[in-house]
Nucleic acid binder design. Sequence first.
DNA 1: AGTTGTGAAGACTTTCACAGCT
DNA 2: AGCTGTGAAAGTCTTCACAACT
Lengths: 204, 204
Amino acid sequence: MEQKISKPARERLIRLARLLEQFEKSGKTTVSSAEIQNRTGWTSFTIRRDVSMLGVRCANTTGYNVSLLKKTIRNTLSLGKAEKRCCIVGLGRLGEALAGFSGFANSSFVIVAGFDSNVNRTETLRAPFPLYSTSKMEQVIANEKIEYAILAVPETVAEQISLRLSVCGIRGIVNYTTAILHLPETTAVENLSVIDALQNLSCK
Amino acid sequence: MEQKISKPARERLIRLARLLEQFEKSGKTTVSSAEIQNRTGWTSFTIRRDVSMLGVRCANTTGYNVSLLKKTIRNTLSLGKAEKRCCIVGLGRLGEALAGFSGFANSSFVIVAGFDSNVNRTETLRAPFPLYSTSKMEQVIANEKIEYAILAVPETVAEQISLRLSVCGIRGIVNYTTAILHLPETTAVENLSVIDALQNLSCK
DNA sequence: AGTTGTGAAGACTTTCACAGCT
DNA sequence: AGCTGTGAAAGTCTTCACAACT
């Protein structure tokens, strides 16, 4: 059965796993695709199709077994297994906010380094991980075995920095800038620009 | 010709408009779909199809006219026309960073209010727009004719706050939390959770 | 009885290939 | 001559409808 799971399906499953975790905590043991539809807006057809892509039966006549389905999603998509090492590049207001974000604690992602071209900032800022000058980026990424980067630099330098990250072998970049990053396919990009998001909303 | 433009096409056109602006500033007057492909990774077929959806011819034998194409995209998608009024809900580290973000200046989005349930924070924080207790949200949104909200509250309250925003008639929410927001279709949602983004990258 | 799992249909998006335009 | 614009094909994703399972 085991088939490649499409990107839209993966995105939903990732979010579904988190929803199931909530259900689990609140003591819910079983959930039907119809209930998930009510809670998320995704149709029950789509949810059943997504789940069937996992290739493991997680349901009986009362619906899905909450913790089994959660576990199956996390295993199949390798979520929450191994620790994945990340860095933050650009420690302006946004980078600083991300450095203090508590939501990483509950995930398998660990921030192990921060970079900024302004040495003053790397020396002044307090963070639960070491900060370096951007000039040391290649070296630190290699030594620390960093796989993912969160890019929060000014738009004007986003392209060149992302290229350097790609050359270092970074596997994925979360791009907070509006810059269009076109990189070798060894480096994936997820765009999280607030302006793009607002424009998508407004011309809907 | 005038046809509904698909969501993927809209997303690309929004970003393309920004790229064209860069080109315009650098003095480039003409660009071919092949060049755009090199710069963005989208295929030239897709770009030509996207542009043809605009229903206006923006090209001649040397390629697209940069400023004409930019203008056409912005007009068709109503980008950058009227000022669109936004608020930030949740003034923790991330909300604060967004409040100070300079990138809004160059866009048609204006932040006109901030909300937080912690009165201490709304009184202490400095921002270029007024801050209010979340209890005044409904009232301020109506008075100020706010259409879009940027949601940066703790995960636990994201759902209920988003529902209140929807009831107020907010047209779109940029959701920085990992919460799954399911709202009436009068309120669109764009999800920008960093954890989701990282997980999407890692199980690619 | 009630829900899932899934083949088949349908809708949507991308890619191809080349006519057509300037 | 060289590019775009687009009908048609291919590919992908979602929806439907119902058999199958417990």
